[in-house]
Design a binder for these strands. Structure first.
Lengths: 191, 191
DNA sequence: ACCTGAACACCGTTCAAGT
DNA sequence: ACCTGAACACCGTTCAAGT
């Protein structure tokens, strides 16, 4: 006899959580409300996710994944970094409280592949365009930092009101990102 | 007859909150625990502060104030921005969960002095060194964003473990900040 | 394997009441 | 003016028990 299909899985949790955050903001995302939205009791969630922090971490990963997928420029590493920065900003903006979420939550814990492998996979697109691994990681960290910081900054209500009459956020983001990427100096390629 | 002196004031709340955060982290900072630390009942806090968000906002302001006070370079605007970036990073690092706090909390609400006045006071040190107001605000926003983002990034536990074996955080921060500041282009000075 | 019911130890905030 | 006591409407998480 057909045993009942499970109502939940991790992917469903994540997408419902994004909906919830869209409607009520990050502070309105509670495990209990999420459960209600999914037609289930709160403890049921803990079968699919260790705790709330893990859920948030999975959401963060999803946001970064979108940015990586959207950054496709294949011409040179500076163009890729500009592309990636813009895509990341769009990914933050594409989800309510996205920057706050990413700034406060952790990444998902490692399933611990070895160090070199991780580094290579993170830096892969830049290495393919001619950068050394160390430069690739460093530059990418800078672009992520700048973009995450900018998005947090911009999403801060009072701060926004403070500045938006005398600062064009889009223009200044572009200017800052361009300055950053232009300022990177590439070491001599090792033969 | 001597009426009893008040036990609390806003400054005391703030410094106790910093202590609390130092011991238990940002997630361990609750109004109730803060009250206990101050030898008082929780509702008493609400006489001195509107709500928890306002308290956090005041803490954020304090952190930025420290950075401004520490950035003293008077030689030229690029040197000032480098100085300020380093001081801000130190200010974030000087308080447990400092970056998370600043990324997620708002600034204190405006006591609404007019727009031009605010902009001038924010940008003052840079204007004194020869920048136009618009450039000053834009460059400063970029440096703050980069530094805030970097500090969030760096304070993220799993992310840190992810990268610290192949990335020198201090060096890469310096490199990124230098790239950013070097990359800024100054418009023609209006006569 | 997957979910419910009940419970534990907390939260932020309000509000009448005390002094 | 400044604080207490009691209460309201929530939290995240655990755990035995159901199916």
């Amino acid at each position: 006899m057909a045993r009942p299909k499970p109502m939940l899985d991790t992917a469903r949790l994540i997408s419902a959580a994004f909906q919830q955050i869209e409607e009520d903001g990050l502070d309105g995302l509670s495990m209990r409300r999420l459960a209600t939205r999914l037609g289930v009791q709160a403890p049921a969630l803990y079968w699919h996710v260790g705790d709330k922090a893990e859920l948030l971490a999975l959401m963060v990963r999803e946001i970064y994944r979108r940015a990586y997928d959207a950054a496709l420029s294949q011409s040179d590493w500076r163009a890729w970094l500009l592309d990636f920065g813009r895509a990341l900003r769009a990914a933050f903006a594409g989800c309510r409280d996205g920057a706050r979420l990413c700034a406060s939550a952790s990444l998902p814990k490692n399933r611990e592949p070895d160090v070199a492998a991780r580094a290579n996979s993170i830096a892969a697109p830049l290495i393919a365009l001619g950068l050394e691994q160390k430069e690739a990681l460093s530059f990418q960290a800078s672009v992520i930092s700048f973009t995450l910081g900018w998005a947090s900054f911009e999403a801060n209500g009072p701060m926004h009101d403070y500045l938006d009459e005398m600062l064009n956020f889009d223009e200044s983001f572009e200017a800052g990102l361009a300055a950053l990427v232009k300022g990177f100096t590439q070491g001599p390629p090792s033969p």
